[in-house]
Design a protein around this nucleic acid. Structure first.
Lengths: 154, 154
DNA sequence: TCCCTCTCGTTGCATTCTACAACCGGACTT
DNA sequence: AAGTCCGGTTGTAGAATGCAACGAGAGGGA
């Protein structure tokens, strides 16, 4: 049961800010896929994200990816299959538990990921060109903080 | 933190921040739809966003929605049709230009939108509960600033 | 050892979202 | 009046996604 949070106050400033945040975040979500498709048609936004995650962690299970990105395991399974067919990802059966397949980016996967990352970094860098370094780091910190809360709170 | 800060490149700080921003934004995008679907199955993320936009503006054209959310006009057309079939949106032909249909939320649309907004505001409010008002407004400002740049820069 | 149950992953199926292209009809320009 | 532009719809196709059912391996308890 949610407890009683002081709600009687106007809280107009907070509410307005929260409203703006959710609206702008969803607005961003609206654009993200199209942007990715335009920027790097060879690697969809999902594929890019999953591949980048594998690269960052140096390998993990499909279930981990599903949990981390709130995707169904079947979705991840298909995405991974596509990545494997494209030669960008390798599966390795865990010797300790034959149910698990540890996923790794291949050399080709790392290569393409690097290229895509460059172009993405360029685009995003242009968009953020006139931001001060201070604003950039603070914005980044806010986003991390938000996503952390979102990941836990469901 | 070591005080031996890499002095030769302030650019690395920027690149790192930009990297984080794009990663976190895309990570958010991964969750957004699922969150919306879980939170209010009766109104998809797209429908909610479009309807909220109509409510906020008090009515606009389908083309405006398409431009604002970087969606194809056919996509918006179908979404609006669905909203109209559901009785949440009304079309009104512009008397000055018979090509134009001005879209308005109906009473039912406003009603549902209000409910969904409440639940969304609650969820987002919980996620942002421990944020200071200052951080909230600054985060909101950053998001608006980013989306503005994204909208123009394509 | 033999079951029961859990976990990891795949596949069939249906739905939704989306873009592109072709098209219609109204409006503006010449 | 003709050509062009603009707002919107529809046909078509592809991709992403979730749910449910299933198979196979792992672990626990009788």
């Amino acid at each position: 049961m949610p407890e009683a949070v002081p709600q009687n106050e106007p809280a107009s400033v907070r509410a307005s800010a929260v409203e703006t945040i959710q609206r702008e975040l969803t607005s961003f979500a609206r654009r993200a896929r199209a942007t990715a498709a335009r920027l790097h048609p060879e690697l969809s936004l999902v594929s890019y994200t999953l591949l980048a995650h594998l690269e960052e962690l140096g390998g993990c299970r499909a279930t981990d990816l599903a949990a981390h990105y709130a995707l169904d395991k079947s979705t991840v399974s298909r995405q991974v299959s596509a990545l494997e067919r494209a030669g960008l990802v390798m599966r390795r059966v865990d010797p300790d538990d034959h149910r698990v397949q540890v996923l790794h980016p291949t050399a080709a996967g790392t290569e393409i990921l690097a290229q895509v990352t460059v172009s993405r970094r360029q685009l995003f860098g242009e968009r953020l060109a006139d931001w001060s370094e201070d604003d950039l780091t603070r914005f980044a910190a806010y986003l991390e903080r938000y996503n952390e809360a979102a990941a836990q709170g469901g």
